[in-house]
C-alpha cells in the first residue's frame, strides 16, 4: 500500500527495536509493524561449527601428519570456563542473541588453537589453507545461514 501511495512510511527507532510506522494520508489510523528475525538458529549454527571441526580433523588425518589430530581433539575436550555447558543450556532455551555470541566465542577460541597447533607442525600458510578449506567445505549447503550470521569470519582462516 505504501508502494502504491496509499500509505506514508516513517522509521521509528527506540532503544530496543526499530519499527516502521505507516500513516494513511490524512487519516488518524496508524499501523505498527515489527519486522523481527524470529528465534536465532543456534542449533543450525552449531551444526556448521561442528562440521567445520570434523572436517579439520578429517583433513589432518588425510594429510598424514602424525599425531596432530590427537592434539586437536584434546583441545576440544577443554572445559573453557563452562562456556560449553552454558551454550547447550541456551540451545535448549531457544537460543537468542547471547547464545550466538557464546557460540562464536567458543569456536573462535577453538579455531585459534587449531591454527597454532597446525602452524607449528606444518607452517602457517599450509595451516591457513587447511582450516580455510574446512570452513568452506562446512559452509556448503548452508551459505545463507553462515553469511547472515557471519559465522565464517570468526574462524580467522
Amino acid at each position: 500500500m505504501h508502494g502504491l501511495g496509499f500509505l506514508e512510511r516513517r522509521v521509528r527507532k527506540s532503544r530496543t527495536r526499530s519499527a516502521l510506522e505507516y500513516r494513511m494520508m490524512g487519516s488518524r489510523i496508524t499501523l505498527d509493524l515489527e519486522l523481527s528475525d524470529g528465534p536465532t538458529p543456534l542449533k543450525e549454527a552449531l551444526d556448521y561449527y561442528l562440521d567445520y571441526v570434523s572436517t579439520v580433523l578429517e583433513k589432518t588425518r588425510r594429510l598424514g601428519w602424525p599425531g596432530i589430530d590427537g592434539k586437536l581433539e584434546a583441545r576440544l575436550e577443554k572445559n573453557r570456563n563452562g562456556l560449553k555447558e552454558n551454550l547447550f543450556t541456551r540451545i535448549l532455551d531457544g537460543g537468542g542473541a547471547r547464545g550466538m555470541e557464546d557460540l562464536r566465542a567458543l569456536f573462535r577460541d577453538i579455531s585459534q588453537e587449531f591454527l597454532a597447533i597446525t602452524s607449528e607442525a606444518m607452517g602457517r600458510a599450509t595451516a591457513l589453507r587447511l582450516l580455510s578449506g574446512a570452513a568452506e567445505e562446512a559452509r556448503k549447503g548452508r551459505e545463507s545461514l553462515v553469511d547472515r550470521y557471519d559465522l565464517r569470519s570468526i574462524l580467522g582462516a
Binding site: K59, R62, L63, G64, W65, S119, E120, A121, M122, G123, R124, A125, T126, L128, R129, L130, S132, G133, A134, E136, E137, A157
Partner: peptide, 28 residues
Amino acid sequence: IDLGELRVSGSQGSPIGFRELQDFLASS
C-alpha cells in the same frame, strides 16, 4: 604427506606453489 588434499579444497582451490611448500617444509 598428501598436500594434494589442500589443493582440492584450498581457499581458492588453487595449486600449491613453491613459497607455500617452502613454508610447510621449513616447519615440518
